[in-house]
């Protein structure tokens, strides 16, 4: 694998994943640089969401899943025996494909991660809620109605609320699983701009089926096909001068 002059936040080593007998990921070796947006692209069913869900151990919930290889977060294997899954998920936040606000008030959505962590200091929590909503660009739109139901927000606002909710826990990495696929173009633009800002403080991994989006917002891109990582490089290079024929065919729209 090519070396870049960045600190790698997350490294996957020969990562394979099986659902029952079926192998979904095949020996993935991926280096995710810190404070960058890394996009993972590929056709539907190539395993990109599954790969993302390995990184915060969300696949643990699927009973038939079984994993081989390692994922290192700052050099430490998150799959080692006795690893604290809850702590890992606090460091690695996630935004889902469909906005999934809890049917609670806006305030209670953002404060949820703090409460389960045992933080009950009301004044401090309120500060964090405000800061998180500001950082996700939602504050101005909701500051008057923090106690209203989150379900009354528009889809784009709900997704930014979910981002704020993830930010409140102060993660180091944010996983985004096709975060704009259920949103309209205007909301998509807002979230893309947000990613550009967030990468200054967080490491972002973005799964997307939208190649233009990957080209617009990411610094690095990995192309995944049938569970294998075909190519990984700087985004500018992947989209202008891919080394693999498969990558070229995919980004030029010959299949997908």
């Amino acid at each position: 694998m090519k070396k870049f002059l960045y600190k790698n936040k997350i490294i996957t080593k020969d990562l394979s994943l099986f659902f029952g007998e079926k192998q979904v990921l095949e020996k993935i070796n991926l280096n995710i640089p810190e404070h960058k947006v890394t996009a993972i692209i590929g056709p539907s069913g190539c395993g990109k969401s599954t790969l993302l869900r390995c990184i915060n151990r969300m696949n643990d919930l699927i009973e038939s899943s079984h994993i081989e290889g390692n994922i290192l977060l700052d050099g430490r294997n998150i799959y080692e025996n006795g690893a604290d899954v809850v702590n890992i998920r606090r460091k690695i936040g996630m935004v889902f494909q469909r906005p999934n606000p809890f049917p609670k008030s806006i305030y209670n959505n953002v404060v949820y991660g703090l409460k389960v962590k045992g933080l009950r200091d009301k004044k401090r929590n309120t500060e964090i809620v405000e800061r998180s909503l500001k950082n996700s660009g939602l504050w101005e739109e909701v500051k008057e109605r923090l106690n209203n139901s989150a379900l009354a927000l528009s889809g784009g606002q709900q997704q930014r609320l979910c981002i704020a909710r993830a930010l409140a826990v102060e993660p180091e990495v944010i996983l985004m699983d096709e975060p704009t696929s259920a949103l309209d173009p205007a909301s998509t633009l807002k979230i893309e701009e947000l990613m550009g800002k967030l990468k200054e403080r967080y490491t972002i991994i973005l799964v997307t089926h939208n190649m233009q989006q990957a080209a617009r917002v990411s610094d690095f891109t990995g192309f995944l096909y049938l569970g294998r990582l075909i190519e990984f490089d700087e985004t500018s290079r992947i989209f202008t001068n891919p080394k693999e024929k498969l990558t070229e065919n995919y980004i030029s729209g010959r299949f997908g």
């Binding site: 809850v86 889902f96 469909r98 999934n100 049917p103 949820y112 389960v116 962590k117 993830a166």
Partner: peptide, 27 residues
């Protein structure tokens, strides 16, 4: 209760019991 309530809570660092108690059971 939608699976996304469980996943959403877990992804925010809730333990399994916390996700059930605060996010599944009420609904």
């Amino acid at each position: 209760v939608p699976q996304s309530y469980r996943e959403g809570a877990l992804a925010l660092g809730a333990t399994k019991w916390q996700s059930i108690y605060t996010n599944v059971l009420p609904h």
